[in-house]
């Protein structure tokens, strides 16, 4: 999977996440990155339900969405790809028609499997939604 490099500020090694009590379900916790407290979302759990497998390859990608700083925990950060505009396709209509909006685009690659470009806005939505039922319970 890929995210738009324009949102990415930095990729750092995985570090221990301090849990944030009563936080929205997908917010794992916070880390201290060079003096700034950054919330961390486990991207793997947000997308597939399985938590990040912590290894030497595990990374946190710091992104900026609508002025919010979010760290996405991932299994690995492999490379920065430069793609031509014409190789980028919209997600399949079959999915979008069903209301699917987690993927922004699909990138085709010659001789290799396609890469899904995630929609960060959708991710934020998910995070917010993950907090909703608990709020209702709390009120």
């Amino acid at each position: 999977m890929a995210i738009d490099v324009a949102h990415v500020r930095e990729v750092v090694r995985w570090q221990t996440v301090t849990p944030l009590p009563n936080a929205p379900r997908l917010i794992e916790g916070v880390i201290d990155l060079r003096g700034a407290v950054v919330p961390v979302v486990d991207l793997s759990r947000a997308l597939s339900g399985n938590p990040v497998s912590v290894s030497d390859q595990a990374r946190i990608a710091l992104t900026e969405i609508d002025g919010l700083i979010v760290g996405f925990g991932v299994d690995a950060a492999v490379e920065v790809l430069q793609v031509d505009a014409d190789s980028m396709e919209d997600p399949p209509s079959l999915a979008t028609h069903a209301g699917y909006d987690a993927a922004r685009a699909v990138v085709r690659r010659a001789g290799s499997e396609p890469i899904v470009v995630l929609s960060l806005e959708h991710l934020l939505e998910s995070i917010y939604r993950s907090a909703l039922p608990e709020r209702e319970v709390a009120s």
């Binding site: 490099v5 324009a6 990415v8 500020r9 930095e10 990729v11 750092v12 090694r13 990374r59 950060a77 490379e79 920065v80 430069q82």
Partner: peptide, 26 residues
């Protein structure tokens, strides 16, 4: 590797100016 990745990110964000740097980072 990590540094190169970050460099590549920065180079990508720099656009055309960062192209050469992107190559080096790669």
């Amino acid at each position: 590797n990590l540094l190169a990745l970050n460099a590549a990110i920065i180079a990508a964000q720099a656009g055309e100016q960062g192209k050469a740097f992107s190559v080096v980072a790669d």
